[in-house]
Design a protein around this nucleic acid. Structure first.
Lengths: 199, 199
DNA sequence: GGATTTAAGTTAACACCGTTAACAAACATA
DNA sequence: TATGTTTGTTAACGGTGTTAACTTAAATCC
């Protein structure tokens, strides 16, 4: 009785073909021009089929948003694993955050672009909690090995993330698409300053 | 011969009524639901009239974006005028930036929301240059009175703005609409750290 | 194996959207 | 008063997200 299996497999294939078709369109034409109709056209099915897999267009965006947070969390963890001390980890994670933003600009826009619906429900993501947890725990470790075990590490995390996000965003707004070669130096400088303020 | 005057006056009234109608809609329903048709309905004219005053919808958004930068520049200058030293000025300007962002969230979303067309042409704005000039000149003065006259003040400005923008954005993404009461403390803490790094 | 129920997929429509060409009416000028 | 210009309208084009109603295909049951 492999019938049910075949059906669910087909359904999953259809779902993922929707996502890959949508992602291709985003990469080639940006978020603005992503449309249900074009997706339906690309996967060679009629429009309402898409609504069997996603409640609405926003749900598709939300799916990509989750993917983005997952990928970012992955990159951060990979970076952290390359160096032993929390302070060094904060630095390489900052580099990884920067690289992610410009290598996956489309994800970044969706995840952090104000006004795009996906950021409204960011607090319900499990994915974003996983990502922030990586930052938070590293900060916590950094504070524990320093002389400040009682410091509010959540506030420190907030600052850490904010500096990162601010540098990346302003770079994107200011310089457009291409990251300035000085940008990463500024980032590393700012990170060094932050780490100094931790101890 | 006040005929021409009456005409241009009427035209300006129409233009500003378009903008105020649009702004009312943005305040009550957000950027997403702003539409040319609703504006036309609100000002009780037919749709094409709007295209006599603005080339397209994007031009209207750009207009608001300019307004936003002008208002922000104004707030920054007002704040700067309240204290004498550049270091103090950087602090009160940071507070003003924070306050502006949450008091005029709609402006902020339009000005700095990634993916919204207005941020694409941000470099052509005269208004944004005026705003950044206020920050840059204050940083420059701060560096001149310190022992670092040769430091690259443009990079320092970049860091200053980035920290500000990052703290505000993460606050908006993280906490949603209402600014956390701890947020401003984090901001002031980060600003203190930045100022320390200047000297 | 044939009838019946269930799932999958399609057509066609609704209600919007930005934009523009073609036209009508009001008006200032000659 | 006739002419030309400005001002505003109607109506359409092509696009969007979404959904109700229908058809067709498949799986189950007797």
């Amino acid at each position: 009785m492999g019938i049910a299996e075949r059906k669910t497999r087909h359904k999953e294939e259809l779902r993922s073909s929707i996502l890959t078709a949508a992602w291709d369109m985003v990469l080639s034409e940006g978020w603005q021009s992503l449309s249900i109709r074009k997706i339906a056209d690309a996967i060679e099915y009629s429009i309402p089929v898409i609504y069997n897999h996603f409640e609405n267009k926003e749900a598709i965006l939300l799916e990509f948003s989750k993917e983005g947070y997952q990928l970012l969390a992955c990159k951060l963890e990979q970076a952290r694993a390359t160096v032993p001390t929390p302070e060094e980890q904060l630095k390489v994670m900052a580099d990884a955050y920067w690289d992610f933003s410009f290598e996956h600009k489309e994800y970044y826009q969706l995840m952090f672009g104000l006004g795009i619906p996906a950021c409204e429900m960011v607090n319900q993501h499990e994915e974003i909690k996983k990502m922030t947890h990586i930052m938070i725990s590293t900060i916590q470790q950094a504070l524990e090995v320093s002389a400040n075990p009682g410091a509010d590490f959540f506030l420190k995390f907030h600052t850490y993330w904010s500096i990162l996000h601010g540098l990346v965003s302003i770079q994107m707004i200011d310089k457009g698409r291409q990251p300035d070669h000085k940008g990463k130096l500024v980032l590393q400088d700012a990170m060094a300053g932050f780490c100094k303020s931790l101890v």
